[in-house]
Design a protein around this nucleic acid. Structure first.
Length: 596
RNA sequence: GCCCUCGUAGCUCAGCAGGAUAGAGCAGCCGCCUCCUAAGCGGCAGGUCGCAGGUUCGAAUCCUGCCGAGGGCACCA
């Protein structure tokens, strides 16, 4: 409707010989119903160049639109306009006829789950990489926001016609993984009866004990070594701050000892057991959160295939690296970064940044027209260097879009909950789902813009979950089902599909009904806007509004009235509402219950 | 110190490629179930859109500078 009106205004300007940029013709929904359904500020914009007062220009445009309508041109929109008015400083307001909206009902019911879908993306391949948490422990509530957000963005883009590839980058090659493997092994030694001091930098969560217990149960003492042997020559740990120990050096030495005492094969086995157990847990967790991926991309595979070396070589060939103090540096300052970055350390090890360059290079080589990374906001300093690397490699950094999701700060009993994966003090995503449910969690997480800090009050979510907006929306959906149920119980025969040969829908003239129709008419363009701007929160706000329109209508009017024609029309209307609610909830991974 | 994000009602947030009287949910107060689920609806009250300039017919929205909050500034991952 908007674009048709735009064409109409453009046509009027053409007839008036007023030159203008077609892009400048903006039609927007009015906030105040007294201003009609749609309004254009074009007269205000063009007044100066046309050398006229805005109001006079607006009147001329409105007159021209009127004569166009009377000639019968622009027939797709003309008949649906009730009247055109000029108001305020020179706004042109369009009041639509109810017929314009009645036609929406058969359209929605016919298109069903596809109402709102489009081919805007034209099948272009887009990759969305999200969560990608290190597999060193279960997902916690911070990851949950990235998960819900990334999934919603991916689903939105798919809905408007992009070919979306969802990917999880598995950091299975770094030092943190060695720390995890070593932590598992140390716990295992404790289960074998060895006495040892657990390193302060080790992973202390209960899940580490669980993995160690599996190892002990299935393999007995096969991985046991004498703890005295293990302690030999280790630099002291830092048990309390300032005691002279070095917890980083200590844990690194422990890893070296573990590898030496176990040998490659046995070390690898423990490492893999830890990795796979946790990765399986993460997969399962996300699946239960309604999230699935096309690919779990292994960092190790990138290292082993030589892709990381190739990436560094490409940078070298392009002349963007140099050696200093034994390390190899990427001159990222030449591409807008604030300082240069190390890609190969003095000890010969590749940095994490080096594999990240290789990974992003690989993403673009795989032919995605656009790559979206969903990162925690604490990684924002990382964006310039990754983009710098893409520029250095001759790629267009604009193809990479990084969405920084602020952390959700948890509150319990009015106190901020401190979290640390290392110490094992955190609320897991699984616990959150158990407490507030998948639906509430998915909805709640995407209610805010990603760059907005989020306060997540656990007590509120637990004790007053009925206040959560998700129930409000779901309740509207359930109420429609309830009306149908009632009709069945009372033995009322309903015409559920609009029949073109009667015009029952014309009976829908109540302001509440037109308001609902108007809201539903916005759905397709809202989905497009939400998808293109990567803002799923627009969906939650829209759904709340639609549910509100419905609940208001529900309270003001009876649907199952005696007048059969009106009854059918109203039922058809609320069936359309149900469909739009479903489509929206479905996009967010939230269920649409028939009964609550 | 430098960089990023955010400052809108008591609280949590929408609105921001400029547009007509700044919106919603909680919390507060007042009403509404012989009727399709009251997990609902209606109403009242509540704001110098952090502050100060600038751009313009018009600024919560764009620009500059301050102030405040959070985060980031490793040969860690």
């Amino acid at each position: 409707m908007k674009s048709e009106l735009k064409n109409l205004v453009g046509g009027a300007l053409y007839e008036l010989h007023i030159s203008h940029d077609p892009v400048a013709v903006v039609i927007e929904e009015t906030r105040d119903p007294r201003h009609g359904d749609f309004a254009s500020n074009i007269a205000l914009v063009l007044a100066k160049t046309a050398g006229m007062k805005p109001r006079d220009l607006a009147l001329r445009i409105a007159d021209t639109i009127e004569s166009i309508r009377q000639r019968g041109d622009f027939s797709e929109v003309g008949p649906h306009i009730a009247r055109v008015e000029v108001a305020g400083p020179g706004f042109i307001n369009f009041h639509l006829a109810a017929t314009a909206y009645h036609a929406l009902i058969p359209l929605i019911l016919e298109q069903g789950p596809n109402y709102g879908r489009s081919d805007l993306g034209a099948g272009k391949r887009v990759q969305v990489e999200f969560v990608s948490a290190n597999p060193t422990g279960p997902l916690h509530v911070g990851h949950g926001r990235g998960a819900a957000y990334g999934a919603a963005v991916a689903d939105l883009l798919a809905y408007v016609g992009f070919d979306v590839h969802r990917e999880y980058y598995v950091n299975d090659a770094g030092r943190q993984m060695d720390i995890l493997g070593t932590s598992v092994w140390l716990r295992y030694l404790e289960l074998c009866g060895e006495a040892l001091e657990f390193p302060s930098n080790g992973y202390k969560g209960d899940y580490v004990w669980d993995i160690a217990a599996t190892l002990h149960r299935d393999h007995g003492d096969a991985y046991r070594v004498d703890a005295v042997q293990l302690r030999e020559g280790l630099p002291p740990d830092e048990v309390t701050p300032g005691d002279g120990g070095d917890k980083e050096a200590h844990i690194d030495a422990l890893i070296v000892s573990a590898k030496r005492l176990l040998g490659d094969n046995r070390y690898r086995f423990v490492f893999e057991l830890g990795l796979n157990t946790i990765l399986d847990d993460i997969r399962d967790d996300l699946a239960q959160f309604g999230i699935s991926y096309q690919e779990w991309y292994s960092e190790r595979s990138l290292v082993e295939s030589g892709a990381v070396n190739r990436a560094v070589e490409r940078l070298r060939e392009a002349g963007h690296v140099y050696e200093q103090a034994g390390a190899l540096w990427f001159r990222s300052t030449a591409f807008g970064d604030e300082k240069d970055r190390v890609v190969v350390r003095e000890n010969g090890q590749m940095t994490y940044f080096a594999s990240d360059i290789a990974y992003h290079m690989d993403k673009l080589e795989r032919g995605f027209t656009r790559v979206i990374d969903v990162w925690g906001a604490d990684h924002h300093g990382y964006v310039p260097r990754v983009k710098a690397a893409l520029s250095a490699l001759g790629d267009d950094p604009r193809r990479l879009d990084v969405l920084l999701v602020q952390f959700a700060v948890l509150y319990r009993g009015g106190e901020k909950v401190q979290m640390s994966t290392r110490s094992g003090e955190f609320v897991t995503l699984r616990e959150l789902r158990k407490e507030v449910g998948r639906d509430a969690a998915r909805f709640f997480y995407v209610m805010r813009r990603c760059e907005q800090h989020m306060d997540f009050d656990l007590d509120l979510a637990k004790s007053q979950s009925a206040d959560n907006p998700v129930y409000y929306v779901q309740y509207a959906h359930a109420r429609v089902a309830s009306v149908l149920q009632q009709a069945a119980e009372r033995g009322i025969a309903l015409e559920l599909t609009p029949n073109p040969s009667n015009d029952k829908l014309a009976l829908l003239t109540e302001p509440h009904e037109l308001a609902l129709l108007k809201t539903m008419a916005r759905w397709p363009e809202l989905v497009e806007a939400a998808a293109l701007s990567e803002e799923p929160h627009q969906l939650t706000h829209y759904l709340r509004e639609l549910a509100n329109d419905f609940h208001t209508y529900y309270n003001a009017h009876q649907f199952l009235v005696d007048d059969a024609a009106l009854r059918d029309a109203r039922v058809q209307l609320i069936l359309a509402v149900r469909q739009v609610l479903r489509n929206g909830l479905n996009l967010l991974g939230v269920s649409a219950p028939e009964r609550m």
